[in-house]
Design a protein around this nucleic acid. Structure first.
Lengths: 214, 214
DNA sequence: TGTTAATAACTGACCAGTCAGTTATTAACT
DNA sequence: AGTTAATAACTGACTGGTCAGTTATTAACA
């Protein structure tokens, strides 16, 4: 064996602050295809181009890494929806429509769609995570929809409604689409945006005071 | 210690054909609280009052046991719903109403509610199981609802509808309730039957040709 | 030279699945 | 009835592999 050549110069990472994002992205991918329990940190590390030990420089445990993944994948979308609703000009239903379309898009095209599945699947083993997700995502999302519905009712656009139930019933098909994509897309792909469009039509009938077409 | 009572001299099982059900019931309970991957067969065995080796006399693997659990928990309910629809006398919406109530009851009160969660969570690791569930439960359930909706449309009770989408939108809230119960019931219990009742009211608005109250 | 970032080899716990052996139940034959 | 032989039901210690988390070591750089 030759001793003089430089065997693998092994470039170290310069911008240390990129590492966490890279790791989180890799973890999302691995969790997405294996679930939490079956995901190997060795695989996460390999996909991030890093050794397993390095993971522990940034995240104290697999569970904390999981929480970071959830945060990174969900919160930006939620905040986007909140900005949409808060700077709200026109008709309330049009606003709801945009939110549905946005969520449908996220569910249909991004890996973030598997997050609810992961959280729900692991809720039993990690109650703390379930509580975190419930507070930071579910509550917040439902509150957003409730605000929107109340706005519609207050402006006389929507019928009086059981706000809390209605909010949940608006979310349900989105959740179902997310689940479907994680579980059955391989065996029977689902046209998410078409289904959401029908959902929108149904919601118009349910919510609006006057029912005119288009 | 009185000597006359039966001091539990370890009665062997006479009726060998009861064992599978006992094991399946125990497995359902353990899977329900740990998920598939984290469930220990030792725990399943202990809960069934049996040793781990015995499990393998009845089921060749953990995965097959899982499938048996799914079958046992889901199929009876599905068949019940099918009988309901097939011997169908009166108004179609009343029929739908009964099915919703039945499913709500099952979701609110039985352990079967965690089955969809388990299947969805493990779909990535056991594609064969996902395919099995899709075919034997999802397809069959959606077909049932589609039949019901077509009946309503044919009899002039329901508006013309995108049948397939409508069927899925009917199921979505039920699925959400099942998921919620598995994941968040400890932190924020959900009144399933009240939510389903609101869902029913919404469906009336969406489905019926004439919208009269009550 | 000392500090930081990263690694790779290692450890220890965990658990599905196995199998050699044990105990109950039944049959067969006095 | 009582004894024995055969079988069915069941057990639990063990194995082999897997993986989260740890640590001793090395490279880079100021």
């Amino acid at each position: 064996m030759p001793s003089d050549d430089t065997p693998e110069p092994r470039r170290w990472r310069r911008r240390k602050d990129e590492r966490p994002q890279e790791i989180v992205a890799a973890a999302l991918a691995v969790f997405a295809e294996r679930g939490f329990a079956a995901a190997r940190l060795d695989d996460v590390a390999a996909r991030a181009g890093v050794s397993k030990g390095t993971l522990y420089l940034y995240f104290p445990s697999k569970e904390e890494l999981f929480k970071a993944v959830v945060r990174a994948a969900i919160l930006p979308n939620l905040e986007r929806a909140e900005r949409l609703v808060d700077g709200a000009p026109g008709a309330t239903f049009a606003l709801l429509d945009r939110i549905l379309a946005m969520m449908g898009e996220v569910i249909a095209t991004t890996q973030a769609a598997i997050i609810p599945k992961l959280v729900i699947a692991e809720a039993g083993n990690f109650p703390e995570l379930a509580a975190f997700y419930h507070q930071e995502v579910v509550q917040r999302g439902l509150a957003l929809l409730a605000r929107l519905l109340e706005r519609g009712v207050a402006r006389g656009e929507f019928r009086p409604l059981p706000i809390d139930h209605a909010a949940r019933l608006i979310v349900a098909p989105l959740l179902m689409c997310a689940m479907w994509r994680s579980a059955f897309d391989a065996v029977a792909p689902l046209d998410v945006s078409a289904l959401i469009a029908t959902h929108r039509d149904h919601l118009r009938r349910v919510l609006l005071v006057t029912e005119d077409t288009a």
